[in-house]
C-alpha cells in the first residue's frame, strides 16, 4: 500500500570548503519531517549536482555553501537545470550570504535563501509549503 508521494530532497554541498556539518544537520531535520533526503556529499560541482538530482528525481535541491562562492555556484545550478529542460525542481540555498546577494540570487531563480538566523523548523515549514512532491 505504497501509493503515497514522498517529498524527495537533495542536500548538496558545492564548492571547496570542507565542512558539511550544516548540510548534515539540515538533512536530519528533513528526515525527521518525513522527507527522503539524498545526501550527495562535499565538493560537488553544479554539473554533478544537477545530474544526481535528475537521476534521483528529487523535488528540491538544497545547496549549502559557506565559502562565499554562492554567487557563481547557485546560479550555475539553476542555469544547468534550465539547459536540461528541467523546470520542476525547486532550488534553495543556505549559508552565510549577504543581503545584497540574496536579492540577486532570487532574481536568477533561487527560490529561497536560508541564512544562519533561520531556524530548522522554519526551513522545514517553508519546504512543506513550497515544494510539492511531483
Amino acid at each position: 500500500m505504497g501509493n503515497k508521494r514522498h517529498i524527495r530532497v537533495m542536500v548538496a554541498k558545492p564548492g571547496l570548503d570542507g565542512h558539511d556539518r550544516g548540510a548534515r544537520i539540515i538533512a536530519r531535520a528533513y528526515r525527521d519531517a518525513g522527507f527522503e533526503v539524498v545526501y550527495s556529499g562535499l565538493h560537488q560541482t553544479p554539473e554533478e549536482i544537477v545530474e544526481a538530482a535528475i537521476q534521483e528525481d528529487v523535488d528540491m535541491i538544497g545547496l549549502s555553501s559557506l565559502a562565499g562562492a554562492h554567487n557563481y555556484l547557485f546560479p550555475r545550478t539553476v542555469e544547468l537545470l534550465r539547459e536540461k529542460g528541467v523546470d520542476d525542481i525547486v532550488v534553495c540555498g543556505g549559508g552565510i550570504i549577504p543581503d545584497e546577494d540574496i536579492l540577486a540570487l532570487k532574481e536568477v531563480g533561487i527560490k529561497e535563501i536560508f541564512t544562519p538566523g533561520t531556524t530548522l523548523d522554519e526551513v522545514v515549514k517553508w519546504v512543506e509549503e513550497n515544494v510539492k512532491p511531483r
Binding site: 514522498h6 519531517a33 527522503e36 533526503v37 534521483e56
Partner: peptide, 27 residues
C-alpha cells in the same frame, strides 16, 4: 518520521558525470 537519509551516493560521487552509470537511492 517516515523520512530517510540516503547517503550511499556520497561514496560514488566520482561516477556522477559518467553517462554509463545510473545511480538511484531508495528508501
Amino acid at each position: 518520521s517516515g523520512g530517510a537519509i540516503l547517503g550511499d551516493r556520497v561514496r560514488m560521487q566520482r561516477h556522477s558525470m559518467d553517462e554509463g552509470v545510473f545511480i538511484r537511492s531508495m528508501a
